[in-house]
Amino acid sequence: MYVWPNNQLLDLLNIEQPIIQAPMAGAQDAQLAIAVAQGGGLGSIPCAMLSPEQILTQFHLFKQATPAPVNLNFFCHPDLAHNREQEQQWLARLSSYYIEAGLDLNTPLPNASRSPFQAVHAELIQTLKPEVVSFHFGLPDASLLDLVKQSGALVFSSATTVQEAVWLKERGCDLIIAQGYEAGGHRALFLDTRIDTQVGLMALLPQIVDATDLPVIAAGGIVDGRGITAAFALGACGAQLGTAFLFCPEAKISSLHQQALSNSTASSTALTNIFTGKPARGILNKAMLELGPISTETPDFPYAASAIAPLRSAAEHAQSSEFTPLWSGQAAALGRELPADQLVRVLAQESQGVCKQLGLAGSKYPLEKA
């Protein structure tokens, strides 16, 4: 039994290790969440790209494998209408790539498959009663959030600024995930869409801890035990890791994505909006360098993904990742290829060793400020 500097997360969830596996839509399913839970962490199932029936199936697969708590994650982006004019402008920007790939610009485009949290999801939550429901891009409407809380689930959400963290607290969030600029995948920003003022985790985390009296989880650029210990030292009650788990065999990423992660360095990622319409951190490739990384021409989220999809499919068929969103945080170079349950245990052991070296005493409460 390990002694941690802060037991809030362990007490809330009755888990062994203060480690949350970040929900990664399109890159995992219940298998990864199960393995993380079996290692003592909190497993997460991303639901933004799943139908209600698929969510039900994934949830039951998890609960059949382990009695551990589970986190169901949803997006809360505005449900904007499909703007055909934006799409045609974006297609015109991509036309030379379509011609180069031998694609027909008049071929019907696939639908974008990311749905915001809706009443059908709230009803499902009341039936399933997961231990945790987490949100990205803010929180759902108050009426829907009330239904989630009535189910008994703890509500987590991500903040990229102190202002967002305070907003989340005022609207009933139980735990805040401080998402530093280093994090892979989509930025959770929802109050301020500027990315040039986004904050790194080392600066963001203690400010959110000071501004709220809620438990705070650190996320962004954490791939080993040193990062977890640093999160504790800055006032967090645990850490959320995403990129670290993409190296695990339970992840559902392509061999092209795996190869890109293995060759990644600290400076090989950037924030881009060209793949979905919202800023997300991924490994640089041809599409990002030539179309962005940030473009003012992309359709609103998630519709930008529709026109990119045929280019991605054609490139991947030719064993190229030049049009693939290769989501990754800035510390992928520290990743290790281990089964997810083993990785959780290794991370915990590493963090414990660093905690002892630094003299971070065990406590039921957050570390006090000097």
Rank of each mutant, 00 (worst) to 15 (best):
L50H: 13
L56C: 05
T57S: 12
T57G: 06
T57C: 11
F59N: 03
H60E: 14
K63E: 05
Q64R: 10
T66A: 09
T66V: 13
P67W: 03
A68Q: 15
V70W: 03
N71V: 00
L72T: 03
N73K: 09
F74L: 01
C76S: 06
D79Q: 11
H82M: 06
N83Q: 13
R84D: 09
E85F: 10
Q88I: 06
W90Q: 08
L91I: 05
A92S: 12
A92T: 14
R93E: 15
L94I: 14
S95W: 06
S96V: 14
Y97N: 09
I99M: 13
I99Y: 14
I99N: 11
E100D: 15
A101D: 12
A101G: 10
G102Y: 07
N106S: 14
T107G: 06
P108Y: 08
P110V: 04
N111A: 14
N111C: 05
A112L: 04
S115M: 12
P116T: 10
Q118P: 03
V120D: 00
V120Q: 11
H121S: 01
A122G: 01
E123K: 14
I125A: 00
I125C: 01
Q126A: 12
Q126V: 05
V133Q: 06
V133M: 07
V133F: 00
V133W: 01
V133C: 09
S134H: 10
S134I: 12
H136Q: 12
G138Y: 07
G138R: 07
P140H: 00
A142F: 00
A142V: 13
D146G: 06
L147V: 01
L147W: 02
L147N: 03
V148P: 02
V148M: 02
K149Y: 02
Q150C: 00
G152I: 14
A153H: 07
A153C: 13
L154C: 06
L154S: 08
V155I: 13
T160I: 10
T160D: 11
T161H: 10
V162C: 07
V162W: 07
V166P: 05
L168M: 08
E170V: 01
R171D: 09
C173T: 14
